[in-house]
Amino acid sequence: MKHVRVEATGTGNYLDPRAYLGLLPALSAELPPGARAFAADPDHYDFSGLRCVKDLVLDALQRGIADGEDWLQLGFRHNCWKHEEDLSIRYIGLSTRNPDPADWTGFGPVTLDEILPHRHGCSHEIGFLGGSLTVVSRDLTATWTEADCPDK
């Protein structure tokens, strides 16, 4: 990631989105509407927030074509200790994805992510404990839905 810091330490990971958050007001003017709304959500980088992406786990992937555009949808499962909702991100006008989706299994929980303006719309890099992925698309739509958390 360019501005969000995710660094391994001897006892875990050091996570610091402050540089990115400082730039976000200026960057958001260049982001497509869906990407802007997701990145600017006040809970997105609040580690105690219910809609913080940290600790979500990628568990579903769908691809297709609609209205002549490639799309990709990623489903993230909640962590019952922290979240009350699951997250689904649909990328519209898919330009690239790296690495290939077949390699995304076993990445583990999300550490943090970063959404930046791109000539094709936006780039979304998601860091996981076991790797990272980047999706470039015209825009994205993030949707939170109630999760089944029996412990709460």
Rank of each mutant, 00 (worst) to 15 (best):
L94R: 00
W104P: 01
L94Q: 12
N98L: 13
I89C: 09
P101V: 08
G93L: 10
D86A: 10
H120F: 11
G127Y: 04
L129A: 08
S123Q: 09
L87H: 07
G108S: 12
I126L: 09
G106D: 06
G130N: 15
I115F: 04
E114V: 01
Y91I: 07
G130Q: 10
G131D: 08
C122K: 01
I92H: 11
V136D: 03
T96M: 11
G93K: 02
D86R: 12
S132Q: 14
S88I: 03
F107G: 07
R119A: 09
R90L: 12
R90Q: 04
L133D: 01
W104L: 15
L87I: 09
H120E: 12
H118Q: 01
R119L: 13
L129V: 13
G130D: 11
T105K: 09
T96P: 11
R97L: 14
S88Q: 13
V110W: 01
D113C: 08
V110Q: 03
V135K: 06
I115W: 04
I89Q: 05
I115V: 13
S123I: 04
S95M: 09
L129F: 15
L87S: 07
F128V: 12
P117D: 11
V136K: 02
P117I: 14
H118L: 04
D100R: 03
H124N: 06
T96L: 10
S132D: 03
S88V: 12
H124Q: 07
S132R: 15
T134C: 14
G130S: 12
H120S: 15
I115R: 02
L129C: 00
H124L: 02
F107L: 13
